[in-house]
């Protein structure tokens, strides 16, 4: 083995890399928030599809199934080249944000749907029978239970959004991976840069999992945590 590792340039760039990891967290967080909001809407639309489907319900089902059954990279390309064909040019950041949000919304919609369907009908009846309105029933009884049900998949989705934001590199967005590639291409120290970046991702993921477990433990004490 006649390769000499050179870690100094990477260490020198560590502050830049850490800053770039904030971009990673930012784009992941935004796409999760958008994914939750849109995913909820999609789930509600899809759950209300009984018998006849309206165009809105077709739209929801199409979104969910395309998001789940094609590669994320394909979805990013769509928001990149695809929209470009209609003369709609998104910035690299917007491409990543749109692609990840589209994808998260589709996956989360199905998690939410499963969560809602796992709450027995009788809970709804019991709440209504003591005079709660539909809104109160959802807010006080149904949503807290659904939240507990989807906590784990939601956490996984957050981790996943962080990992997949690395595709920013392929569409020119300089988040953590994109920046690493940029610096590496100037020094030819690809392995060293990516090894350090791998460590940063690993740490980020562990941090997210730990935060989720602690928050979940506080929220769901009633049933011995998550």
């Amino acid at each position: 083995m006649d390769y000499n590792f050179h870690w100094q340039p990477v260490i020198g760039r560590l502050p830049d890399l850490l800053l770039a990891s904030l971009d990673t967290l930012q784009v992941a967080a935004l796409s999760i928030v958008l994914g939750i909001v849109i995913g909820l809407l999609l789930a509600i639309l899809r759950m209300n599809a009984r018998g006849r489907w309206t165009p809105l319900q077709w739209f929801a089902v199409a979104w969910i199934e395309i998001a789940r059954n094609t590669p994320v990279l394909f979805q990013l390309f769509f928001f990149g080249f695809g929209l470009g064909a209609w003369g709609w040019h998104l910035s690299p950041f917007m491409i990543v944000l749109a692609g990840l949000s589209f994808n998260c919304a589709g996956y989360l919609a199905e998690n939410f749907r499963g969560g809602f369907q796992s709450i027995p009908d009788t809970q709804y009846r019991a709440a209504r029978s003591v005079g709660m309105s539909a809104g109160q029933t959802y807010y006080h009884i149904i949503i807290p239970q659904v939240l507990r049900k989807v906590w784990h998949p939601l956490t996984n989705q957050i981790v996943w959004a962080v990992l997949m934001s690395s595709l920013g590199m392929l569409v020119g967005y300089q988040e953590l991976t994109g920046s690493a590639q940029y610096f590496a291409s100037r020094t030819y120290r690809i392995f060293e840069y990516f090894a350090v970046v791998a460590l940063i991702y690993y740490a980020l993921v562990k941090l997210i999992l730990m935060a989720s477990r602690m928050l979940g433990w506080r929220l769901f004490r009633s049933e011995g945590g998550v």
Binding site: A126, A127, R128, S129, S133, Q145, R148, F220, S222
Partner: peptide, 19 residues
Amino acid sequence: NRLRQKLGMVFQQWNSFPH
């Protein structure tokens, strides 16, 4: 909702709110 306040109901499955 107002009427149901007058009518207490107990189900076969107890339906306590688990959270």
